[in-house]
Design a protein around this nucleic acid. Sequence first.
DNA 1: TATTGTTATACTCTATAACTATA
DNA 2: TATAGTTATAGAGTATAACAATA
Lengths: 141, 141
Amino acid sequence: MDERLDASTGYLLARLGAESRRRWARMLAEHDLAPHHLAVLMSLGHVGPAHQQRVSALIGVDPRNTVAVVDLLQHRGLVERAVDPGDRRRHTLTLTADGVDLLTKLREQVDAVEDLMLGGLPGDDRVRLHGLLARLAGTLP
Amino acid sequence: MDERLDASTGYLLARLGAESRRRWARMLAEHDLAPHHLAVLMSLGHVGPAHQQRVSALIGVDPRNTVAVVDLLQHRGLVERAVDPGDRRRHTLTLTADGVDLLTKLREQVDAVEDLMLGGLPGDDRVRLHGLLARLAGTLP
DNA sequence: TATTGTTATACTCTATAACTATA
DNA sequence: TATAGTTATAGAGTATAACAATA
């Protein structure tokens, strides 16, 4: 009998998500970054310049907690904060050249962590899992 | 174009796992419990009486942090701690009758949270996702 | 000597309330 | 009045080091 918990899909998501986050955190600690920092870089790399609130929604972090994350990235010269002329309450975030470089370099290590995390699944199942998770993420608030 | 991040399966896991955990936490707060408490109850319900260290491994929580979780469950009379006669260093955890009752009652609410979380996926995709996650969980350390 | 559970503690992440400035 | 960003802060979760009891 399988000893693992498999009663609830939601629980499995939380359980595996915590494990994945732990591995990301260990890898990113070598760069003095936390998972949320890379999440911001990735989101900007994916959708281009965006307001802080939109980035917060994309990465699932409360805007109040996003402030400190962006502060660090800005101080390191990885992200630029600029007031939106159209609505001066908004701050547009943009990847700097250094931000793009770091993002490129990190992709290798992200892939390596991923291979270890998903090592137990055959390639086609990884693709299926990715597709299902991506679709599920698209339904979130 | 889909605005969501879909570059990394590991990231999607962490992102969706955090969302799932958040919903569990909100639901369980009504019972003055946290996700880890239900995780312990579920694990005991699944594998039967088990030592603390084994439960820790099953739910992915460090044994040091499991102590306080089990303390609360014991004080509420949901779980029983007993020294293992065979190896007196070990403490065997067992669900009490109240623990079994609560677990049964919570299953409905767990399912309700799950329906909301996975509402965007058709039924057969939910089954596929569950199967993939369960297999992946079986490969963890 | 190694292992199970424990304590204490520091650190990170998350959630709650209220403020500033712009609209 | 409502919204974007911010600050401060309390609370929950996690990780580090060291200890007692037992094997």
